[in-house]
Design a protein around this nucleic acid. Structure first.
Length: 315
DNA sequence: AAGCCCCGCAACCGCACGTAG
DNA sequence: GCTACGTGCGGTTGCGGGGCT
């Protein structure tokens, strides 16, 4: 539309803000409010364009900005809302008091998005992406076995999901794999659920499922189950997980990813503790090693958004 | 200690949208 | 209806710090 730029390029400063500039901006806004952003820098004695001032204020200087690491609840909220809203950062930010759209966007791009990709989940659709995965390397001989002998038993969607669930593993101990053909239950060793980790103690928390636990699947569902209480999760992969402050554990409504707190051993549970669903815990400190999946029982397959997270107004 | 590399984040850029004249 | 303006939004960039060799 041929509109003029918000500021003349000549003579206006760009780049990082100095403390003096910050102080000028804060002082001015405290005295006069921000009013017109275009005229503000001139009135405040700043050699900046209005846009730059607005960004600096809204993303950094605003008194209600919450600083520091994202809490787990905030992270869960971001993932939930992103699965519904997509890259509507401002809409997501409006549900996270004290967080800016820019901050959330950065956090998504630098942490959450990468993690999803590594786990074979499309960060845009929040669905498994088979094209990101290498089935043969993930399942080794098991895949061959399935392909050769069991394919007629397996729902392709099931295989797809299973693949994504194991996408974060780097190695596979084939000796433990077995196929239970009666109801197409797949059994995998504990190691399959864990990051490659030389620290065996940390990689095998005491409350992991034991070797009698198995992957349970039918034509429509797949999940981690114990022999005594099978459980299922949907073969679709909406994200739904939360963190319980009291127990310091992650919970999940679906097969999905979770991101345990750093530098602590964390254990994942289903929403129903009686179902014995697992999943991962370690005391690693890297992002990679914090990845894991969880499955749960079929009692919670519906994605529920609390009132405060009602996003209907935004879609 | 020095150099290199990677990553996170603040800031910029350009476009879209609403509104006033 | 057209244009200019103000602002919001999402994508992208590049600096700086920290880790690694």
């Amino acid at each position: 539309m041929g509109r003029t730029p918000c500021c003349e390029k000549n003579g206006l400063k760009k780049g990082p803000w100095t403390p003096e500039e910050d102080q000028k901006l804060v002082d001015y806004i405290h005295k006069h409010g921000y009013g017109n952003w275009r005229t503000l820098p001139k009135n405040a004695g700043l050699q900046r364009c209005g846009k730059s001032c607005r960004l600096r204020w809204t993303n950094y200087l605003r008194p209600d900005i919450k600083r520091g690491r994202f809490s787990l609840e905030e992270e869960e909220t971001i993932i939930h809302l992103h699965s519904i809203l997509g890259n509507k950062w401002s809409a997501i930010a409006s549900r996270l008091p004290g967080r800016t759209d820019n901050e959330i966007k950065n956090y998504w791009n630098t942490h959450i998005r990468k993690r999803l990709l590594r786990m074979g989940i499309d960060p845009v659709t929040h669905s498994p992406r088979l094209d990101l995965l290498d089935l043969s390397s993930l399942f080794g001989s098991s895949i061959s076995h399935i392909n050769n002998n069991m394919q007629h038993h397996l729902n392709p969607e099931l295989l797809k999901l299973a693949t994504s669930l194991f996408s974060h593993t780097n190695s596979l101990d084939n000796s433990h794999n077995q196929i239970i053909s009666s109801d197409v239950s797949l059994s995998f060793p504990q190691a399959n659920f864990l990051e490659s980790n030389n620290n065996v103690d940390s990689a095998y928390p005491s409350n992991l499922m034991n070797t009698s636990d198995y992957w349970h699947a039918d034509n429509n569902n797949i999940g981690i189950a114990s022999t005594s209480s099978p459980c299922y999760v949907t073969d679709q992969l909406p994200t739904s997980y939360y963190y319980n402050n009291n127990s310091n554990n992650y919970y999940c409504h679906h097969a999905s990813l979770v991101d345990p707190p750093m530098s602590e051993t964390s254990t994942f549970h289903s929403n129903n503790s009686s179902s014995n669903t697992y999943v991962n815990g370690n005391n690693s400190s890297t992002e990679d090693e914090r990845e894991s999946y969880v499955s749960t029982n079929n009692s919670v397959l519906r994605f529920e958004i609390p009132d405060m997270l009602d996003v209907n107004a935004f879609v």
